[in-house]
Nucleic acid binder design. Structure first.
Lengths: 120, 120
DNA sequence: AGTCTGTCTCGACAAGCGTCGAACTAGATG
DNA sequence: CATCTAGTTCGACGCTTGTCGAGACAGACT
């Protein structure tokens, strides 16, 4: 349930400190782009962007799938698929507790992405 | 050359002030997600992420296609296609000056995206 | 006008993605 | 054990995307 994209080279997506200077400050190396692009890609779908926001802004920092699914006019498998995509991009982490599954945001990678886009 | 995604409702991608509170503060409305997701999607390709960085970090704030293309092992049409994608996402703006075409980053939307991801 | 160079458009192709229903698994509860 | 519910996985379907080569277009320079 906490499966990670396996082999995260050179860039630590969980670090608190920014991995790299803003995109506009210095040209991103190809390896960095290869690691970070999938995270942006995962956020590049309206449903996943909303899911991400619902999870990150949820009370207690976590959201139950049972609360996420009915917020969309989409089938359960489709929501599950989007959550898997976010998970494999390293943006969220899921945990089963009894009957329900809860997801929480991984703050490290969010900081990496925000730092990269910073214009300062 | 400065074609825009036409009809930007509710959210002004060029504004200097953030359009909305961070993703983790309040749940993003569907309309906002629909407007912002395409920008993340455009950044969700390693080549485009590098292009974006090369343009945004270039001397004078602009980069010539003639300098961008040879930086990748890709055909001219492919680079041109990626630049068009970034353009249509509102991330860059192109201008022809004589023989060459120059692209520059649109700082407003970058701020919107960074603000949305801010964890504060 | 002719030509050369830089960039874009077009058409094609394989690969990837979003969606669904059906079938499956994990826990809870009878 | 039987059954019910919450989520996930699987297989399939059409649509989108990344890539290319061929050709078109725009300026510069003979």
């Amino acid at each position: 349930m906490s499966k990670q994209a396996t082999a995260l080279p050179l860039v630590d997506l969980n670090a608190d400190a920014p991995c790299c200077p803003p995109l506009a400050t210095r040209r991103i190396p190809a390896e960095t782009a290869a690691v970070l692009a999938p995270a942006f890609k995962a956020l590049g779908d309206p449903v996943r962007l909303q899911l991400m926001s619902m999870i990150a802004s949820a009370d207690g920092g976590e959201a139950c799938v049972c609360d996420l699914t009915p917020a969309f006019e989409l089938s359960g498998p489709t929501i599950s698929h989007h959550l898997k995509t976010l998970r494999e991009a390293g943006l969220i982490d899921g945990e089963r507790r009894g009957t329900w599954v809860y997801y929480r945001a991984r703050p490290g990678i969010m900081r990496q992405l925000a730092g990269l886009l910073a214009t300062e």
